[in-house]
């Protein structure tokens, strides 16, 4: 089954990124001269998705305006407004519920990744009611471990997830292959007072419906601070898909 839909959460105002995006929305902070969100969209497009459902909130007008002018071949946008963007990110994901009825790729607007990682995740067969989380077992090589969301796996399933869990063996990369069952889990978690995406994932994990997908040697970075942004620029410049963006910049009308 080909997955062609991608949900991107781009509504928050990135308080910790304020030093690098003051006044503007974090997803438009330039990384090597290209907005963070554009890097993510181009990488996802390279992995095979084409319909982008983007949840915006803080300065969503600027994000829509940017991509309105920036024509990207092979990309269609469905903009979803979340007026409650100051709340947790699970609430943002829930605003897309009515738009997604088939499996979809879920991405964060501030997690850079390699297209090959998303492509590999999209090749995974997914069962009804299941969500697959791309995880990184290279714990020592991740940038800013303290801030990373940790996961504990058992037999290929995620059994615990959170920033403060006592035992873990991998990290949440912010990339998911989801069925619409995600939304039920988010609603259930929200009813229990946890509006975060991790809260929804814990709901799924408790029913053993959250599977782990090991990204192997793939690299990713959560661009959450000015230092992380500098690190991301080094990764893009030295190792990644930068030619992808460069080509787009050079040749797109």
């Amino acid at each position: 089954m080909k997955v062609s839909d991608c949900l991107i959460l781009a509504a928050g105002n990135g308080r910790r990124m304020q030093p690098l995006s003051a006044g503007g929305p974090k997803p438009l902070a330039p990384v090597c001269g290209t907005p963070l969100l554009e890097h993510i969209i181009l990488a996802a497009r390279e992995a095979g998705v084409s319909n982008f459902h983007v949840v915006v909130g803080y300065r969503g007008d600027l994000i829509r305006e940017y991509f309105g002018q920036r024509r990207l071949d092979g990309v269609s946008f469905d903009w979803i407004e979340n007026p409650d963007y100051h709340q947790e990110n699970g609430i943002s994901a829930l605003t897309a519920r009515a738009r997604l009825h088939e499996p979809f790729l879920l991405l964060m607007a501030d997690h850079l990744f390699q297209p090959s990682t998303a492509w590999a995740l999209l090749q995974e067969p997914i069962s009804e009611g299941e969500v697959i989380l791309a995880v990184d077992r290279k714990i020592d090589s991740v940038f800013d471990l303290d801030d990373a969301t940790k996961v504990r796996r058992e037999g290929g399933k995620v059994v615990d997830i959170g920033k403060e869990i006592p035992a873990y063996d991998a990290l949440d990369t912010g990339m998911f292959l989801c069925t619409p069952a995600l939304f039920d889990a988010l609603e259930s978690a929200s009813r229990n007072g946890d509006g975060s995406l991790s809260g929804g994932m814990r709901e799924l994990a408790s029913g053993r419906r959250l599977r782990a997908f090991d990204i192997g040697e793939g690299r990713w970075v959560d661009v959450d601070t000015p230092v992380a942004l500098t690190y991301a620029e080094r990764l893009l410049e030295c190792e990644w898909q930068f030619d992808l963006v460069k080509g787009e910049k050079t040749y797109a009308a």
């Binding site: 990384v31 090597c32 001269g33 460069k246 910049k249």
Partner: peptide
């Protein structure tokens, strides 16, 4: 290129 100049402008914003 256009992209090169965007990188320089990105440095202004940073």
């Amino acid at each position: 290129s256009d992209h090169d100049r965007a990188r320089q402008m990105g440095e202004v914003l940073h």
